[in-house]
C-alpha cells in the first residue's frame, strides 16, 4: 500500500513539473524535450517542446543552451542563429487517474484537456574553431556559463 501511495505521489509530482533540459526520447517521451538534426554543412536545427507547465522563456533558454552545447560537441566555439521561432502550440492532454487494487494498477482515462505548450526552434550554423568569427555569432561557452547551471 505504501508503494502504491509513493507511486501515486510520484505520478502527481511528475505531472506538475516543467520540462527540463532533457533529450526527447522516442520511446518514453517523444514530444517533450530537445531534438536536433544536422541540416548539411555546419547547419543544425535545434527544437524544444515543453509541457503545459513550461514557460516560453524557459523553452527559449533551453533551446539556446542546447544550441551552445551542440556547438561545443561539433568542435565549434561560436554559432550563428539563422532562424528562430517561438510559439505556444495547442495540445490536448488525456488526464488519467491511477487506480491501484489488490494485485493490479492501472491508469484510467478521465477527461481530455486543452493546453498550450511552448515550442522553440533555432536553426544555427556552427562556426568551426579555426574560422574567423562573424560579428553576429554567439559565444557558445558564455551561454553555457550563463544557463548551464540553471538547466542541468
Amino acid at each position: 500500500m505504501r508503494t502504491a501511495t509513493l507511486l501515486f505521489l510520484a505520478f502527481l509530482t511528475g505531472c506538475a513539473t516543467p520540462t527540463g533540459y532533457v533529450k526527447s526520447d522516442p520511446a518514453w517521451s517523444p514530444n517533450y524535450g530537445y531534438r536536433d538534426k544536422p541540416m548539411g554543412g555546419n547547419e543544425f536545427s535545434v527544437s524544444f517542446t515543453g509541457n503545459r507547465h513550461t514557460g516560453a522563456q524557459r523553452a527559449a533558454e533551453i533551446v539556446l543552451l542546447r544550441a551552445a552545447r551542440l556547438t561545443r560537441e561539433q568542435g565549434g566555439t561560436h554559432f550563428v542563429i539563422l532562424k528562430e521561432k517561438a510559439r505556444a502550440m495547442e495540445a490536448v492532454q488525456l488526464t488519467t487517474l491511477p487506480v491501484v487494487g489488490a494485485g493490479f494498477a492501472a491508469f484510467v482515462p478521465v477527461r481530455e484537456q486543452a493546453a498550450l505548450e511552448p515550442t522553440a526552434i533555432l536553426l544555427i550554423q556552427v562556426v568551426p574553431g579555426q574560422k574567423p568569427v562573424p560579428p553576429e555569432a554567439v559565444d557558445a561557452q558564455s551561454v553555457i556559463d550563463r544557463l548551464g547551471a540553471r538547466y542541468r
Binding site: 536545427s45 527544437s47 502550440m89 495547442e90 490536448v92 488525456l94 481530455e112 526552434i121
Partner: peptide, 20 residues
C-alpha cells in the same frame, strides 16, 4: 522537416509540423 510533434495516447490528437 525540422520537427514533427505527434502526440500519442489521447483520443484527440494535434500534430504540429515545422518545415524550413
Amino acid at each position: 522537416l525540422v520537427d514533427l510533434k505527434q502526440p500519442q495516447g489521447a483520443y484527440t490528437l494535434i500534430v504540429d509540423s515545422h518545415i524550413r
